[in-house]
Simulated assay, not measured.
Amino acid sequence: MRVSRLFLAQPLREGDRIHLDPDQSHYLRDVLRLKRGQGLTVFNGEGDEYAATVADLGRAGIALAIGERRIRDAESPLVTHLGLGIARGERMDLAIQKAVELGVTRITPLVTEHSVVRLDRARQEQRRLHWQKIAASACEQCGRNRVPPVEEPTALERWLPGRAGLRLFFDPHGAVGLGDLPRPTAGVCLLAGPEGGFAQRERVLARDAGFVAVRLGPRILRAETAVLAALAALQTLWGDWR
């Protein structure tokens, strides 16, 4: 039987007794349907995980007894920073969820010329917290113990300068494919556009910032599909799928 995993954004130590908040208690009791005495795995994003047991289950909530600390690394050796043009609702959620499952290291949501979604400052932080929660949930599912940070949404023009590593952006008219590129020595920085793609001005800015336009085959891929296809290909070429 598969052991359930739960992300807890707090310090964890062997022997601790943790009282869960109402949302976490609801998830364990009503979604996972765990009972008193059942085991699960908990982690806090710092790299390790802990065995845990449901010690108390009542109307006041659920308490967990924290057990043995386990060292287990599920991170890819390939460092990948994803600059992701903000897309609508479920498309953005899906891209972030699957990027985390595919081993992405860091995600920056980007405001681009063709972004359909426009967020004021208050909503930007609200959405960032939502996307960060999706990243944590993806780690619960896929077995990662380090949760990739989802950074504050940033304008593309502000994000482009100073990026490190092999810098790539997706362009159906790109002159090269991923297999034509040299093995990166300092990670990969990926730039993916929103539903409408990049404006010509943004393509020029990306090239001026050292980004190489790469094609992902002869077909036009949706924004979220391009992200997943590229990350899977990178893991095959240079990551932990080799």
Results as ranks from 00 to 15, higher is better:
residue 98 K to I: 00
residue 136 A to M: 06
residue 119 L to F: 11
residue 90 E to D: 13
residue 122 A to N: 10
residue 232 A to N: 02
residue 185 T to M: 11
residue 213 A to N: 01
residue 153 P to C: 07
residue 112 T to R: 06
residue 58 G to C: 08
residue 237 L to N: 07
residue 82 L to C: 02
residue 27 Y to M: 03
residue 207 R to H: 08
residue 149 P to L: 12
residue 72 R to K: 13
residue 231 L to H: 00
residue 161 P to Y: 02
residue 171 D to G: 09
residue 213 A to K: 05
residue 204 V to I: 13
residue 98 K to C: 00
residue 62 I to P: 09
residue 35 K to E: 14
residue 15 G to A: 09
residue 141 Q to F: 12
residue 75 E to H: 08
residue 221 L to N: 03
residue 238 W to L: 12
residue 20 L to G: 03
residue 27 Y to F: 14
residue 190 L to D: 11
residue 94 L to G: 03
residue 116 V to Q: 15
residue 233 A to T: 15
residue 171 D to V: 04
residue 83 G to R: 04
residue 19 H to G: 09
residue 151 E to A: 13
residue 80 T to P: 02
residue 238 W to P: 12
residue 175 A to W: 01
residue 166 L to E: 05
residue 71 I to H: 13
residue 39 G to M: 03
residue 135 A to T: 01
residue 144 R to S: 13
residue 175 A to K: 07
residue 198 F to Q: 05
residue 99 A to E: 00
residue 99 A to I: 00
residue 48 D to Q: 12
residue 194 P to S: 07
residue 52 A to E: 11
residue 25 S to M: 02
residue 86 I to M: 11
residue 69 R to E: 14
residue 59 R to I: 02
residue 212 V to H: 08
residue 94 L to W: 15
residue 60 A to K: 15
residue 147 V to R: 01
residue 166 L to V: 08
residue 120 D to G: 13
residue 211 F to P: 05
residue 116 V to D: 14
residue 92 M to C: 07
residue 169 F to P: 06
residue 3 V to P: 04
residue 151 E to G: 09
residue 139 C to R: 07
residue 76 S to D: 06
residue 20 L to A: 09
residue 124 Q to C: 15
residue 124 Q to K: 14
residue 12 L to Q: 02
residue 42 V to W: 03
residue 155 A to T: 08
residue 182 P to G: 08
residue 69 R to Y: 04
residue 63 A to D: 15
residue 77 P to V: 07
residue 92 M to D: 05
residue 68 E to T: 14
residue 140 E to L: 06
residue 107 I to V: 15
residue 6 L to W: 00
residue 146 R to C: 15
residue 30 D to K: 04
residue 179 G to K: 14
residue 170 F to P: 02
residue 24 Q to F: 04
residue 130 H to R: 14
residue 143 G to C: 12
residue 205 L to P: 03
residue 195 E to Q: 10
residue 167 R to Q: 14
residue 30 D to Q: 01
residue 138 A to D: 11
residue 159 W to E: 02
residue 225 T to H: 07
residue 219 R to A: 14
residue 104 V to L: 00
residue 91 R to F: 09
residue 196 G to N: 08
residue 220 I to K: 08
residue 192 A to P: 00
residue 68 E to L: 06
residue 239 G to I: 10
residue 59 R to F: 05
residue 211 F to H: 06
residue 37 G to M: 01
residue 99 A to M: 01
residue 44 N to Y: 10
